[in-house]
Amino acid sequence: MRVAIAGAGAVGRSVATELLENGHEVLLIDKNPAAISVERVPTAEWLLADACEITSLDEAAFQRCNVVIAATGDDKVNLVVSLLAKTEYGVPRVVARVNHPNNEWLFNESWGVDVAVSTPRLMCALVEEAVSVGDLVRLLRFSQGDANLVELTLPEDAALVGVRNGDVRWPEDTALVAIIREGRVLTPHRDHTLEGGDELLFVAAPSREPQLETLLSPGR
C-alpha cells in the first residue's frame, strides 16, 4: 500500500515509521527544509514541497496513493490537502489530523476527509476511558457513514450482566465490534455472556448513542 503523509513533524514521522514497519510504501512531504530529516526515517521517500499546491501533489504522484494522511500542525493545511487528495486525485482513503477541537466539525466528507483524528479528543477520551464506568466515551468519528467508535465499561450492576450477546436487542445502526476482558480482545459472538467490567467497543450512529448508554446503564 502506498501512503503519502503531508507533514513531516513528530506525528508524521511516527506514523511513517509504523507504516514502514508494517511493510507499506511511505512518502513524507513537507515545505519546511528543517523538517526534511531523511536520517530519522531513512526508508521513506521524502519530498520538499508545499502539499497545498497541485504541482507538488503531481510530483508526489497522489494518483497512485491508496491513502493520504494530512498530519500537519495547521488545520487549514490539513483540510486543503484532504480536499485536493479526494477531489483531484480520487484517493480512496483520506485521514486528517485535527489540531484544534473547535475545527473538528469541518473535518468531514465535504472536505474529502474519511477519518478525522482529533488529538485533543483522543487524549480526553483516554482519560475518561480510564476513570469512567457506565459512561459512553467517544473515541473516534468516522466521516463516511456518520458513525462513531465508542467505548463503555459495563458496570457490575448493569442489567445486561450475565446476558448473552445474542439475546440483546442492540439499537439500530449499532454494532458491538469488540469486547476487552481481562486484557484479552474478544470478537463478539452470540454465545458470549456479558460480564461486569467488560470494555465494550461499538460502532454506532451518533443518534443512537443515548439509547446505547441507557441500555448499558446500571439498574435499568
Rank of each mutant, 00 (worst) to 15 (best):
residue 189 H to R: 15
residue 209 E to V: 08
residue 196 G to I: 02
residue 186 L to Y: 13
residue 153 T to P: 01
residue 186 L to E: 13
residue 171 P to T: 06
residue 152 L to C: 09
residue 158 A to N: 02
residue 179 I to H: 06
residue 166 G to S: 10
residue 180 I to D: 13
residue 179 I to Y: 09
residue 207 S to K: 11
residue 160 L to S: 04
residue 205 A to M: 02
residue 208 R to E: 11
residue 153 T to N: 02
residue 178 A to V: 07
residue 203 V to I: 15
residue 209 E to W: 00
residue 160 L to D: 03
residue 159 A to E: 05
residue 199 E to Y: 05
residue 208 R to V: 10
residue 187 T to C: 10
residue 164 R to L: 13
residue 193 T to N: 04
residue 155 P to F: 00
residue 175 A to K: 07
residue 189 H to D: 15
residue 154 L to Y: 03
residue 164 R to P: 12
residue 173 D to K: 13
residue 160 L to E: 01
residue 167 D to H: 11
residue 199 E to P: 00
residue 165 N to Y: 13
residue 202 F to L: 08
residue 195 E to V: 04
residue 190 R to Q: 15
residue 193 T to P: 00
residue 184 R to A: 14
residue 182 E to C: 07
residue 190 R to A: 15
residue 186 L to F: 15
residue 199 E to G: 11
residue 175 A to H: 11
residue 156 E to I: 01
residue 193 T to D: 06
residue 173 D to T: 01
residue 190 R to L: 12
residue 171 P to M: 06
residue 160 L to K: 01
residue 195 E to I: 01
residue 152 L to V: 14
residue 207 S to H: 11
residue 179 I to K: 11
residue 205 A to G: 07
residue 202 F to V: 08
residue 160 L to R: 01
residue 175 A to R: 12
residue 166 G to L: 06
residue 175 A to S: 14
residue 174 T to G: 07
residue 204 A to H: 10
residue 153 T to A: 02
residue 178 A to G: 05
residue 210 P to D: 07
residue 152 L to H: 03
residue 154 L to Q: 02
residue 198 D to Q: 06
residue 205 A to N: 09
residue 159 A to P: 00
residue 199 E to C: 10
residue 194 L to W: 04
residue 159 A to H: 00
residue 192 H to D: 14
residue 172 E to P: 01
residue 173 D to R: 14
residue 184 R to Q: 15
residue 192 H to W: 08
residue 168 V to N: 04
residue 206 P to Q: 05
residue 155 P to E: 02
residue 206 P to M: 04
residue 178 A to C: 12
residue 182 E to G: 07
residue 168 V to A: 07
residue 209 E to T: 04
residue 157 D to H: 07
residue 161 V to T: 06
residue 182 E to D: 13
residue 161 V to K: 03
residue 185 V to W: 01
residue 167 D to V: 01
residue 188 P to F: 12
residue 165 N to D: 09
residue 186 L to M: 15
residue 182 E to K: 14
residue 189 H to Y: 13
residue 193 T to C: 08
residue 166 G to W: 08
residue 160 L to A: 03
residue 188 P to I: 11
residue 152 L to D: 02
residue 161 V to P: 04
residue 185 V to I: 15
residue 169 R to V: 09
residue 173 D to W: 00
residue 165 N to M: 13
residue 198 D to H: 05
residue 163 V to Q: 05
residue 161 V to Q: 02
residue 202 F to N: 07
residue 172 E to F: 01
residue 170 W to E: 10
residue 152 L to G: 03
residue 156 E to L: 08
residue 172 E to V: 10
residue 194 L to I: 07
residue 194 L to Y: 06
residue 181 R to C: 11
residue 196 G to F: 02
residue 178 A to Y: 10
residue 159 A to G: 00
residue 177 V to E: 08
